[in-house]
């Protein structure tokens, strides 16, 4: 399946082809878009991009962690983590193109209602 990794340079190239600006200006626009999103998130403001997804910062409380090497207990301080929720449009787009390629590869699942001897008792 995958192999390619898309980077900033690819996004800048796409913007360059979309709008008649220089490559440098196109790259600056990409940088600004990412920067503006990061600024909003750092302010604690959620970012919603319709038909793509939303980003929001969530607070995580303090918990006890362990140094995996020494086994020593260390408190993990409360912190903000970023959560990305993909929109249905994006999820459908991904499954519309990837899932059909893999058809028949999944597990064969027999539903209770399809068992010849009726529902399994467990």
């Amino acid at each position: 399946m995958a192999g390619r990794t898309v980077t900033r340079a690819d996004l800048a190239e796409a913007v360059f082809r979309e709008i008649g600006l220089s490559r440098k200006e196109s790259a600056d626009l990409v940088e600004s878009v990412l920067g503006l999103i990061a600024d909003a998130l750092a302010r604690g403001e959620p970012v919603k991009i319709s038909s793509f997804g939303s980003f929001s910062a969530r607070m995580k409380g303090q918990r006890i962690g362990r140094n995996p090497k020494t086994g020593e207990e260390v408190p993990i301080l409360p912190r903000r983590v970023l959560v990305f929720r993909a929109s249905h449009v994006l999820k459908d787009r991904i499954n519309g193109s990837l899932a059909p390629l893999e058809e028949g590869e999944g597990l064969e699942i027999v539903l209770d209602s399809e068992r010849p001897d009726g529902p399994a008792s467990s």
Partner: peptide
Amino acid sequence: RVVNRIFNEISDALAQGDRVELR
């Protein structure tokens, strides 16, 4: 168009099973 292009580009890549890495 710039903003839409960026997110479409990311969506297209993911739809192809590619990864998008923005350091």
